[in-house]
Design a protein around this nucleic acid. Sequence first.
DNA 1: TCTAACGTTTACGTCAACGTAATCTTGTGA
DNA 2: TCACAAGATTACGTTGACGTAAACGTTAGA
Lengths: 145, 145
Amino acid sequence: MAQDTHATSNTTSSTEYSISQLSKEFEVTTRTIRHYEDMGLLNPARRGQTRVYSPADRTRLRLILRGKRLGLSLEDSRDIIEMYEPGKTNVDQLKKLIDAIQLQRIKLNQQLDDISKLIKDLNRAEADCIEALKTSGKSTENNNL
Amino acid sequence: MAQDTHATSNTTSSTEYSISQLSKEFEVTTRTIRHYEDMGLLNPARRGQTRVYSPADRTRLRLILRGKRLGLSLEDSRDIIEMYEPGKTNVDQLKKLIDAIQLQRIKLNQQLDDISKLIKDLNRAEADCIEALKTSGKSTENNNL
DNA sequence: TCTAACGTTTACGTCAACGTAATCTTGTGA
DNA sequence: TCACAAGATTACGTTGACGTAAACGTTAGA
């Protein structure tokens, strides 16, 4: 990590991140990160008007992007992330939360099932390909358009 | 399956499906199914101008919806589905296909990893909830906002 | 015969998730 | 001092994946 040729002087400690740092680390645009804030998924501190991201903010971003890879909407991700927060210590809220967690788990299990099936399909497809390659090595009679 | 109170006379054999049959079975609108056709993911036969879906078409639709649950774009799904088709028996095509299959497998493994992490997170969140519930049962001093 | 249920095409509308300017402020090294 | 890189705000544009409405053709049962 000795890249300081023209670096933006690391005034800040290692427990904060600028928007461009996160942008590079997670390979998303700054616009995207700001968009997540607009949608209420992030809420970084400010130094003047500049956004200052904490490790917790960074974690949230990681979770958002994980959710994205899983095909969740930003709203879904926001809901899930809020499950981790110990803010609302109300009995009713907690019970609702547990229900929501159950629901998410069901969806995830469905997804696991989908993926394992897809992987099996891919394995079969690959096997077919390899078989076809062998065959085409021995004869060229398989060139039916 | 004895629902024939006002049925659309089953003239057709059980190896074909109308668009509304598929629509009901998979709980999507007919518009959606036609949209998949517009995007080149389906290509049903026609009787006159009416679409007639084969079991193979039905399978493709199932695959499309599975891909959708996994967060794939229609284009991705189309690519994957084409992997299963033994149409293009060309050596170069086959090699490309195997590479593509590898790529997909990598993405799926990533997704598996994401999901297992998410499930662990949810488990922890749930445990925290339950713990909080116990605590709040013994004292009400936890109602901080 | 006629209408109700299904089917078709065509085309504009919508919503989420950003992309893409344009314009402005601020800190920093040459 | 001054240019420039990074950050900010505002606002319109775009893309994918359908929704929704209009307008029309076909077929079967009352």
